[in-house]
Computed example of a mutant assay.
Amino acid sequence: MDLLRAAIIGPKGTPYHDGLFFFDVHIPSAYPSGPPLVYYHSGGLRINPNLYENGRVCLSLLGTWDGRGCEKWNPAQSTMLQVLVSIQALILNEKPYYNEPGYESFATTPNGQLLALKYNDDTFLYSCRTMLYSLRRPPEHFADLVAGHFRVHGHTILAACKHYMAGNDIGSVVPEEEEESASRSAPKAKPGVIRTIPLNRRYAGSFDTSLKVLYEDLLMEFNVKGADTRKFMIEKLKKDQPAGT
């Protein structure tokens, strides 16, 4: 086999949590002497400094970014599994803002931390748009996987959206009662930070406005796919009900 497609689930505790991200992998004739070629299905969205709109994946292991020692492809040790795990753990991480070259040096500064939080806000919005893109235009032969994934995780994603609209940090733990219908087999979320948001953190409510629109779209899509949306649909019906009825 010289061509395969991989679906990576966004890790808990990150702005990518519960999302589905698709990658096409070409195994060249020189493999394993050289690394595979990896293409990301971006849907035209830049969700990470290492993942480009044109599908380019920047990773030292792939030879698409500078690296030293064990960061680079080693024909005797490197594997396809290592590539996929690296994408999930090193690229789809808790603070992707610091993936940008040179930005890690700002991690200990107040402004750098604020920018990282703002980047997480934007990234979660892109992740939600990626979910909608996958639901509406699933990769060939992966429609059942996409539908099944969001059927299981839809409730958790919607609960997280409401949690974030309430002012909590992206990736922070959603209260247990909000995830009562989540799959027992789903990985437990990492502890997150819940704190008061600085007034200049989320600009003029743009995050909330955008997320509210995405939440409504996701609710409808998840409902069609058979996810546990009953609680959220009831809330929507009550909200949409004319006053005095």
Results as ranks from 00 to 15, higher is better:
residue 172 S to D: 06
residue 172 S to L: 08
residue 48 N to T: 02
residue 240 D to I: 04
residue 203 Y to P: 04
residue 54 N to A: 13
residue 7 A to V: 13
residue 167 G to T: 10
residue 103 Y to H: 12
residue 162 K to D: 08
residue 168 N to G: 04
residue 112 G to K: 01
residue 241 Q to Y: 03
residue 74 N to G: 14
residue 36 P to Y: 11
residue 76 A to K: 12
residue 143 A to T: 08
residue 9 I to E: 02
residue 148 G to H: 04
residue 78 S to D: 04
residue 151 R to G: 06
residue 161 C to F: 10
residue 94 E to H: 15
residue 106 F to I: 12
residue 52 Y to K: 00
residue 66 D to H: 09
residue 71 E to M: 14
residue 201 R to H: 11
residue 110 P to V: 07
residue 21 F to P: 09
residue 69 G to C: 06
residue 127 S to M: 15
residue 231 K to I: 07
residue 92 L to A: 02
residue 134 S to Q: 14
residue 200 N to P: 00
residue 215 Y to L: 10
residue 235 E to A: 05
residue 17 H to E: 11
residue 25 V to M: 12
residue 50 N to C: 14
residue 231 K to Y: 00
residue 114 L to H: 06
residue 190 K to I: 06
residue 219 L to K: 06
residue 74 N to P: 10
residue 103 Y to I: 08
residue 238 K to T: 08
residue 108 T to W: 14
residue 135 L to Y: 07
residue 240 D to E: 07
residue 205 G to H: 03
residue 240 D to F: 09
residue 173 V to P: 09
residue 176 E to Q: 10
residue 98 Y to V: 13
residue 184 R to G: 14
residue 64 T to C: 05
residue 41 H to D: 13
residue 173 V to Y: 08
residue 73 W to M: 07
residue 206 S to V: 12
residue 162 K to L: 12
residue 243 A to G: 01
residue 14 T to W: 06
residue 167 G to S: 11
residue 174 V to K: 03
residue 219 L to R: 13
residue 226 G to A: 13
residue 198 P to W: 07
residue 188 K to R: 12
residue 239 K to W: 14
residue 2 D to N: 09
residue 211 L to F: 02
residue 39 Y to V: 05
residue 48 N to R: 00
residue 86 S to Y: 01
residue 152 V to G: 02
residue 113 Q to K: 15
residue 197 I to W: 07
residue 95 K to W: 14
residue 81 L to Q: 15
residue 35 P to A: 05
residue 82 Q to E: 11
residue 208 D to M: 08
residue 161 C to G: 08
residue 183 S to V: 15
residue 26 H to V: 15
residue 235 E to F: 00
residue 224 V to T: 08
residue 69 G to N: 01
residue 230 R to A: 11
residue 99 N to Q: 07
residue 124 F to C: 01
residue 88 Q to S: 15
residue 4 L to K: 10
residue 100 E to I: 09
residue 91 I to W: 15
residue 171 G to I: 05
residue 87 I to L: 14
residue 177 E to I: 13
residue 66 D to C: 09
residue 53 E to P: 10
residue 214 L to T: 04
residue 224 V to C: 09
residue 212 K to H: 14
residue 241 Q to W: 01
residue 245 T to H: 14
residue 212 K to D: 02
residue 244 G to A: 11
residue 165 M to A: 02
residue 182 A to I: 03
residue 213 V to L: 14
residue 112 G to W: 12
residue 182 A to C: 10
residue 109 T to P: 06
residue 78 S to K: 13
residue 176 E to R: 13
residue 193 V to G: 00
residue 245 T to C: 11
residue 240 D to G: 04
residue 6 A to F: 12
residue 73 W to N: 02
residue 13 G to Y: 10
residue 129 R to S: 15
residue 128 C to K: 00
residue 152 V to N: 01
residue 88 Q to C: 11
residue 177 E to Y: 04
residue 37 L to T: 03
residue 184 R to V: 11
residue 92 L to K: 01
residue 189 A to D: 03
residue 16 Y to G: 05
residue 207 F to K: 06
residue 165 M to I: 00
residue 164 Y to R: 02
residue 113 Q to Y: 02
residue 192 G to K: 01
residue 35 P to E: 04
residue 12 K to S: 13
residue 4 L to R: 06
residue 178 E to H: 14
residue 74 N to Y: 15
residue 101 P to N: 12
residue 15 P to R: 03
residue 49 P to C: 06
residue 100 E to A: 11
residue 62 L to N: 05
